[in-house]
């Protein structure tokens, strides 16, 4: 996994609540057997109309907006456990997703793929949307080390929480497999007694 430390980028606003994984990547695109190419179908049914033409009203097709940060409404990533949603966001080029709430499984999937989910207060989220709407060139900075998100050139900033273990993993580009494999002896010992009781 790639390490993540700090990013300053413009951001793409998507002020819709309860964006579920079926919207992020519809099921009909889950037939691949590798992790590549999902970015092309990110938000497919919002991004393109039935005939495959880009939908002008959708923010990803609006050239005013760009960047590696997605700012989304409350309860982002609810629904299915498909990690394809994280692969699609990553494939498209997003490194950070900001919302006031993330669904559990999505949060884990994002972190396992080097995408940082930044959970902010509802008021801060609103503030971000306002700034970006007024000026699409607004730069947002996310610093993992100090756990802060801020609007560049302003005093506007907020601290965010992240699990210390996950933070360490992201900063160093480690993943859980490395860690779990280092515990192999413990796991073997556990198994010896486990199957006798349960």
């Amino acid at each position: 996994m790639e390490a993540f430390k700090q990013i300053t980028s413009r951001a793409i606003p998507l002020p819709i609540e309860n964006i579920d994984t079926d919207q992020i990547i519809p099921a009909r695109f889950l037939k691949a057997t590798d992790r590549k190419g999902f970015g092309d179908n990110l938000f497919r049914d919002w991004r393109y109309d039935k005939s495959g033409e880009p939908n002008d009203n959708f923010v990803l097709n609006n050239t005013e907006y760009a960047g590696e940060i997605l700012i989304a409404g409350d309860n982002f990533g609810c629904g299915s456990s498909r990690e394809h949603a994280a692969w699609a966001l990553k494939g498209y080029g997003f490194k950070v997703i900001v919302s006031s709430f993330f669904a559990d499984i999505f949060r884990g999937n994002a972190l396992n793929n080097g995408i940082l989910p930044v959970q902010v207060s509802g008021a801060f989220l609103k503030n971000l949307f306002n700034h970006i709407e007024t000026d699409p060139e607004t730069l947002i900075s996310v610093d993992l080390e100090s756990q802060t998100i801020s609007i560049s050139g302003t005093e506007v900033s907020e601290a965010f929480e992240i699990d210390p273990y996950k933070k360490m993993c992201l900063l160093n580009g480690y993943d859980d497999i490395d860690f779990l494999l280092s515990k192999r002896e413990l796991i073997d010992t556990f198994e010896e007694t486990h199957f006798q009781i349960s």
Partner: peptide, 20 residues
């Protein structure tokens, strides 16, 4: 409970998950 594909790989490799 449901898990993502990275976790599927973790369980393949170690029969365990690291969880809160």
């Amino acid at each position: 409970f449901g898990i993502g594909t990275s976790q599927v790989a973790q369980v393949f490799a170690s029969q365990c998950l690291l969880l809160k």
